[in-house]
Design a protein around this nucleic acid. Structure first.
Lengths: 117, 117
DNA sequence: GCTATTTGCAACTCCATGGTTGCACATTCT
DNA sequence: AGAATGTGCAACCATGGAGTTGCAAATAGC
């Protein structure tokens, strides 16, 4: 009864939570589609570690892999990021709205239940 | 060496990555400042677990605790969420821009080194 | 066909993190 | 003062995730 879109959000935020993954995303968007082996050269971790991160990002829908011959190129899927941004903005707006409502309520009824003792 | 604002983002995204924490944030914004004990009654975990999550959220700057007598009330700090939203939107925009630049480049120089077969 | 390069498992280690419990400390109320 | 209630701390456990290594399978180039 909270957010039906919480599952994809979970995926995305989990993916975004890892700094290596964010950096991967960043580099990928900066330098276009690259292979895992290619990417791995710029990171302090093994190629396999990068592959795992790429997998996580793909699972979150933030990347798409495309096979070219014996290479697999990973590219950014901007729409997903856009969705995540929209979700975050929505939550923020909801909070803001509720806080405003709370402030309004407090202005109308300053200290409910505090004069009972 | 990439983004100087990556540290706070790391905190925020790490905090947001946990579903319990997101729910906590949600409830807190919906029902105003509440104590850890109060919050814990609505969750399948112990009060201490909730306290830890609250601590993580506070560390990320998403919550602020305020002591009232023997109770500690936790309240949402919307600005931080706003910052996170802005950051995400910024990253998204940057990606979009780079993709556009890439598309433009490809239009000018369609397929460098790939037309050999 | 052989070799080099690259991807794709799979097994394994390590540690950060979510969760628990128990107890001490503080505060309020009678 | 003493009972209740609530917070804080610390030890502890278990799981998951990040990372590694080794090797097999596929593909490209000679």
């Amino acid at each position: 009864m909270h957010q039906p879109d919480d599952r994809p959000a979970d995926q995305v935020f989990t993916a975004l939570a890892d700094p290596t993954r964010r950096r991967l995303l960043d580099q990928l968007s900066a330098q276009g589609p690259l292979s895992a082996t290619d990417l791995a050269t710029g990171y302090p971790v093994s190629r396999q570690a990068v592959v795992k991160h790429l997998g996580a990002l793909s699972a979150a829908g933030l990347l798409r892999s495309e096979r070219h011959g014996r290479e697999v190129l990973y590219g950014v899927v901007p729409e997903r990021l856009d969705e995540a941004t929209a979700w975050l903005a929505d939550v923020g707006a909801r909070w803001d709205h509720r806080l405003r409502a709370l402030a309004d309520h407090l202005r109308d009824d300053p200290d409910p239940g505090a004069g009972t003792s």
